[in-house]
Design a protein around this nucleic acid. Sequence first.
DNA 1: CGCGGACGTGAATCAGCATTCAGTCGATCC
DNA 2: GGATCGACTGAATGCTGATTCACGTCCGCG
Lengths: 235, 235
Amino acid sequence: MPYRRTENVVRRLAAREQTILDAAQSIASESGMGAVQIAPVAHRADIAAGTVYRYFPSKNNLIAEVIALAAGRELAAMREAADAAPGPLSALASCIATFAARALNDRRLTWAVLAEPVDANIDALRVEFRRAIAGELAWRINIAISGQHLPDQDARAVAPAIVGALLEGLIGPLAAPGGNAREAVQNVTLFSLRALGVVDAHARGLIAQCMIPELGSYSNKVTRFTPCSSGSSAT
Amino acid sequence: MPYRRTENVVRRLAAREQTILDAAQSIASESGMGAVQIAPVAHRADIAAGTVYRYFPSKNNLIAEVIALAAGRELAAMREAADAAPGPLSALASCIATFAARALNDRRLTWAVLAEPVDANIDALRVEFRRAIAGELAWRINIAISGQHLPDQDARAVAPAIVGALLEGLIGPLAAPGGNAREAVQNVTLFSLRALGVVDAHARGLIAQCMIPELGSYSNKVTRFTPCSSGSSAT
DNA sequence: CGCGGACGTGAATCAGCATTCAGTCGATCC
DNA sequence: GGATCGACTGAATGCTGATTCACGTCCGCG
């Protein structure tokens, strides 16, 4: 007869799992996805390498989980910011600024989660995440178009370009490292809005009113992101 | 007494080296940088694995060479297109459109060379390449700004964002695969020009006059790209 | 010719890492 | 208080893929 899982044990196991996830994320955030290896993660979590496999069936699964958690967090923040805005263009601006601000807040992690290749299986999940972000933007863009706030254009095509511009312009290897973060966020947001066809002066106005998340501290909701498409096994 | 290298031998060796480079590039172009492994490259070049090492001291050096060659090709094409244009904004538009068109022409290779991570040492070279492209754009942007054709802005910050938008918007995993290539090029160019602050109508005019390289065939000059910074050993 | 050096070969070596598993230990149950 | 269960350990295993090297082969040389 199998043993029951004591309340205590359940807590301990859950805590351990979280510890592993935290270890993996912090390593990713410090040294990139490539550095997320079983041995270092286990070491940082103060457990043996083998133990990791009691919690995650494979390294890929662990990484996938890290990505899914980060993705859920970012998407939720973007939605929240956009939903709080007064109009379609404001929503768009907030959405972009929020993504930008949070990315800037933890450059390396964002890069690791969104851009740094690891493995073909993982890449599939990452692409889902990017798609979700681009989709979120595309959705808002379409609303603005149908309200005549933006010139007619193919939102599905433009949204990825904005994501690329944000990533490359803010946290890519070429982006200036230091500088005024708030200003950088406002600049890329302005850039994006203009690219969408908002005239310069209007865009500046929108940005001025835009809530930009406090840099240095942001919500850490743990709504795991689940891609809609079925096929992301991440073996 | 060491033997001299016969004319014939020199030719043969050079041809072999080229064959290896071609093999590596074609594999990268078909399956990405990850698939550029010594064994497959050697196989495609019809030589033994060990022979590759008579021509390149390490795999990284081989890959670095592939990247440098591609980079030189692309930069030259961008410069040529821009220099042939009548004015600063035209030059900018041509530069962007050329990059876009050529990238679209060989998506996978462009992606492999510009975006697909391989190894930290290689990444350094890749970053140099990106920097060179962004620098080329920044240069043209600054000319346009000083001629009052563009609103004042930080070209060094904006140029990488444009590169990101082009890559992600055209050849990234989210970009629509099929479709009208010429139209796609014109769309991202329009997007970029607007982002820089060119008003919509004017941008469209510029693009209409813009020479877009024939899709499907383009110059294959072999001006190897050499990053200016000294430290790109690529061990 | 026939010697010797350079090229070419590909099997063996080496290294990095994920994954496994026989063995240890503390908690749970009767 | 034993009998087990099941988590934990970490050394051993296995795989993938770059790199090496002892040995053929070719060709310029006298």
